[in-house]
Each structure stands twice: as C-alpha cells, then as structure tokens.
Nucleic acid binder design. Structure first.
Lengths: 199, 199, 199, 199
DNA sequence: TATGAATGAGAGTTCATTCAT
DNA sequence: TATGAATGAACTCTCATTCAT
C-alpha cells in the first residue's frame, strides 16, 4: 500500500524529471501526475531532495544489476566485458531512458547531497569493474590496483559519454546499434591490451 | 573598462558557481563578490542564464585551445594525442579547476539553452578529435567516419570521467600525476589499436 | 470558499486602486489589506494584470446592469433614458465610487490588454444605447446608424465627464443632486431633438 | 540652447508616451530617442513626473488656443461653438494626435500631481466654455451659473469621448469627417436648446 | 491516511536618480 | 554643460513546506 503510493510518485517524478528537467518540475506537478495531493507527497518523502536521492539510488541499483547480470554470462573475459557493455546500451540506455537521463543529466550538480549519492553510485560501479578486472587479470599490488581503477573509471566514462551523445542528445549517427558495436569494439581493444600486457 | 567589470563579474561567478553550485548562487552573491551592486550586473549581462552561457563559451574556448596547442607539438601521432591528453590534465584540470567544474558539473542539466551550448562545445571538441584521427589514419568512408566519431566521443568520455573522479570528487588515488599517466597510457593503447588496424 | 477569498482580494484591490492608484499599489499591499499572504494572491489570480482585468469586467457588468435595469422601467422613451442616466449618478457614481474610479481613472492607459478590456466594455455600453435609440426612433439605414452611434458615444461622454468632474474630482458645485438633474435635462434636450427630428 | 534641448526631450517623450504608454517608456528611451545622455535629462527636468506635467501643460495650452482661436471667428453664437468643435477634431485630434493621446489616455490616473495638472487644465477649459455660454446667453445667477458649468462639462465630455472612440481607438465608423459633423450637429442641438430656453 | 489552501522567504529583474569624470 | 556607469530599493512571481480539517 505504502510502497504502491511511493512507487507512483517515483514513477511520475522519474518521467517528469527526464522530460522537463529537475528544476522545472514542482512537487505539485509530480503529485498531479501521480494522481494524489501535494500533502500526500510528504507522507512518503521528507522533502524533494530525498525523492531525487531515492530515484538515484534506484537508478544505481538497476544499472549495477543490469551490468552484473550480463557479466555473469559464460564466455572469455573480454566477451563478458563486452556483454556487460552491450547490456548497458540495449537494456539500460534503450530500456530505461528516464533513468539514463536522471543519472547522467538531471542529478549532476543538483546539490551537495545528491552529488554525494552520485559519487557513491559511481564508486560502487567502479569497484565492480575493478573487481572484475582484478579477478580476470589475476594481478595484485598498489600500482596494479591504481591502474585497474583508472581503467575502470575510463571505461565508465566511455560508456557514459557515448550514451549521452547518442542516446540523450541523439547527435551524430542515428544507427545506435552500430554505434554501440563500435564503442564496444573500441573498449574491447583498450581492455584487451590492458589484460594481455604483462603476461 | 567595460570589459574589466564584465571580467570581474565572470570571475566571481565562475568561482562561486564552482564552489556552491549554480542554483545556490544568487545574482546578489555574485555582485557582492565582485564588489558591485545588483543593478550593475544587468549592465553587462541581460540575465543570469546568459552569464552562464558566456562562462561556458569561454570554458569551451579555453579547453579547445589547450588541447589544440598541445596537439600541435611535434611527435608521432600517438605522442601528439598523448600530449593533448596530458595538457588536459595538467593545464586544464589543474590550472582551471573552476572551468572544469563548470563544464562537467554545473552546466549539466541546468536548462535547455545551456544544454544547447554544452552540446555545441562537445560537438566542436569531437570534430577536432575526429579531424585529428582522420588526418592521422588517412582513411575515409562513412563507416570509418562513424568509427572515428565514436572513438572521439569515447576518448572525451574517458578524459571527462577521470577528471571528474580524480579532480572534482578527488576520490581514489591522490597521486594525480600517476593517475593521469595511467589514463594516458590506456588511451594510447586503445587509440593505437584503432590507428594500427587495417594496415 | 474559494469565491470568498477571491472576493476579499478583489474588494481590497478595488478599494486600494481607487484610493492610491493602480501603479502605487503592490500585490503585498492588496494581500495585507485582505488579510492574506502574498502567495495566496497567486492562488486566485495568475498575475496583477488579470486582477485588474477582472475588476474591470465586474465594473462593466455592474454598470450595464444598473443602466439596463433603470431603462426597463415604464415611461416615455425620453423618460426611460433619463431614468438610466439618473441611475448612473445615484446608483453607480454614489453607490459604487470605487468602480467609478476604476473604470474612469485607474484603468485608463494602464496597459494594452487592459485598454482592450476597457474598449470592450465601452463597445457594449454603446451598443446598448444605440439599440435603445434605434428601437425608440424606429429608423434604419447606414447614415442613421452612424448618427445613433455618435449620439450614443456622446451621451456616454457627457455622463462620464460629469461623473469625473463632480464625483471623482468633486470640483464645482457640491450639490450633486442638482448637478445630476442639470446634466439629465441637458441630455434630454439633445436626445429629444434627435428623436423628434425627421418626423 | 537650453530651450532647444528641452524641446527635443519633450518631443521625443510626447511621441514615445503616445506610442507605447507612459509606464513602458524609461528615461533612457526618451534620451536615446532625443539623441542625448541620461544625465542630460536631469539638467532640464528635475524628474520624470515633471516632464509629464510640462507635456500636459503644453497640451492644455495648445488645446485652449486651438479652441479659442476658432471661437473668435465671426458668426452666430452657435456657429462659433461649432467652429470651435470642428477645430478640435480637425486641428487637435488630427493634427496633434500625440497630445490627444497624452491628455486623454496617458496622463489619466498616472499619479496625484499629474491628476492635479489635468484637473487644472480641464478647469480652464470649462471656465472658457462657461464664459462663452454666459456671454452669449447674457444670463446670470447661481442656478444659471451651475447650469452653464454642467453644460460646459458635458460638452467637453462629448468631444472627449468621441475623440477617444474614433481617433484613439479608431472604433466604429472610419469616416471621421462625417462622425465629426454628426457630433457637432448633436452638440449644436443640445446647445441650441439651452441658449434658446428661457427667452 | 489524505487533502490542498495557505505561507513567506527568496529569486530575478527594472529603472529613476546620482555623481565622478 | 554633458556623460553614462553605477546604485539599490522595490516589484512581481515561484514553490517547498506546513497544517487545520
């Protein structure tokens, strides 16, 4: 019951934030879209910021699960990274566009607490990727760990900006499938050289 | 004279925006910091948004010049890309932190017109990189052009997120110099494989 | 309930506008006088201008009803015109002084949209009078219609300036009753000659 | 020299006020149109309000002279009134449209001091007409004087609203010449009955 | 639980007026 | 005389949050 109402509010907010931008959406817009009263909002969220924080948390969870699930699949190490990347484009960018916009655009620079949440999400994602790289390469050590972290950050940056460019701005090539494959190939090349190296 | 006052306002705004975030800074805060009256602001800018737009434009210009200047230097193609990347970290991220924050954090999702300006800046940067890749690899064709573009977008994404992670959030390794070198090495690897390929 | 608050605001605004003049009255003055907060104003009116527009509309309605009701009464054609004129002075100028000031002074030259509303009100009043003249005189034709219209405009002008002079400025003779009767007699003389003519 | 500058300012202001409305015209607009600096304005006028006051004074003077000059011409009493009315439409409404707008629209409800000036102008005009009526009818006495005053006020009201309707709003019949003649005929009828009466 | 009218601090913007040059 | 950059009070409007019902 309570979860249901909360869910309605979050869904409406997610859509409106992605559509019009956070600051252009008032609480009243959200509750109107969700079919309840302004007062009800404060029964489920202490304030507007907390709503965004939870939306972001949910987005982070969804994104991690999407990537992790794809990474589980059988295959060579590089295949598994590629699968995760493909899932990002196919499942997340295409299937959860509102979340994509939320995490890449609307939550950026919103406010200090939100930024903290964003940071936490990215930290988890990076840890995931660092873990994967480490397990696959089998190497250890401070320098190696730093390298793995920088690579992880870079990989996420690539996915992020390709998504922003082609899925949010919808600039450049309209054939997203091919764009995604190019990006994945490029990532594979870079990642391949990292994993190979030192062997 | 006029340019001077404008400069004072822009400098104060740049600093405050980077410090507290765009929406948390009122016109009165900016003018107070710049040692002027509220009214004076409107002598130099038609409105708050236009100030941000100009700040962003300036940032884009500075960034492009920084990268282009480093790319001009003699060396192998890969060296030149590396030089540009190194200039990004050394000159831009370190030397112009406020601008870095402005373009990567504060201007994101601020509003439709600002987003347009951001898009324009990224477009120019991408075109620069695509041009560089194309001249170096000497290949042409629609598929090649799309590949070059995706690679350019990815490269920028890597630089962007590494900068955000280590220079804005200041997360992870504190040794930015080494981080930068790791990132450059990773970029070099990916780029190398792209340029080599097909020969 | 909602109508009540709106009514409070309109009443306070009507009074203050008439007292101090439109442009000298801030929203905060109105809401203070109405015993509400500034924000409440915008619950009932989209902006200040719309408040004036509605006040003007209400005034136009009241004025037309006052004149029409008096004109309905039995009597010779000239008597009926005289009754309407007398109602204007007795009922409207005396009983609704704020409205009188609003339509004759405060709404003049306020702004293009308000002027449009004023024009619409006068148009209706003129059509009413033209209709009355036409029905009474029983004549038709383009020239006659123009004449009726000019006469209607003139009659309204007489009432208007007499009201402005004696009821708003309170210049000249203080005995408004006699002034009104003089004015009505003058109108009757002019109108009589128009209606008689051509028989 | 001084008068010249002042004249430039007044001419520019007169035009702009009539065009856009008093409150929509800033001092800077006026001085820009007059080809001098903002500061210069305050060399010739102590403030904005005084400018309007003087503009109004000038308008009142022009109007009185126009009417008086036409009234001087030879003819029967009624002819002389008619001549004055015709001069109002031909010379003032047609020839000095900006002044017409100024006195009938822009100065209304502008502010207490301006209203005072308007009142003074109307008082003079009324006295002129009362004087004319009295000289022509040759009667005296308090009641007669009140009647003459009410008639004078009414006459001005007729002229005023006909002017507003057909020359400012440009509503109704487009043939202003005929409209003016109708109005003059109506005035003549009313006035005729007043002058005749009691003989 | 649920409502939505009410609040009021705070934002951006304007512009008559001043004054150092 | 003349300039026009600078001032800052004042205004309209927004919206997250509260609370009586």
């Amino acid at each position: 019951m309570k979860g249901q109402r909360r869910g309605q509010i979050m869904a409406a907010a997610r859509r409106l934030f992605a559509e019009r931008g956070m600051s252009a959406v008032a609480i009243a817009d959200i509750t109107r879209a969700a079919g309840l009263s302004v007062g009800a909002f404060y029964l489920y969220f202490p304030n507007k910021e907390e709503l965004l924080r939870q939306l972001l948390e949910e987005t982070g969870r969804t994104l991690r699960h999407t990537l992790a699930a794809a990474f589980q699949l059988k295959g060579s190490p590089l295949d598994r990274f590629e699968n995760a990347g493909r899932a990002f484009f196919d499942k997340f960018c295409n299937g959860q566009r509102d979340m994509l916009v939320l995490i890449l655009r609307e939550s950026v620079g919103a406010n200090a607490d939100i930024e903290e949440q964003r940071k936490a999400i990215f930290q988890l994602l990076i840890d995931d990727v660092v873990g994967a790289i480490t397990r696959v390469s089998g190497r250890r050590g401070r320098a190696t760990s730093r390298r793995a972290q920088v690579v992880a950050v870079s990989l996420l940056g690539m996915l992020e900006r390709v998504a922003y460019h082609y899925y949010i701005w919808e600039t450049g090539s309209k054939d997203r499938r091919k764009v995604a494959e190019e990006a994945l190939a490029f990532i594979r090349a870079g990642l391949g050289s990292v994993l190979r190296e030192g062997n």
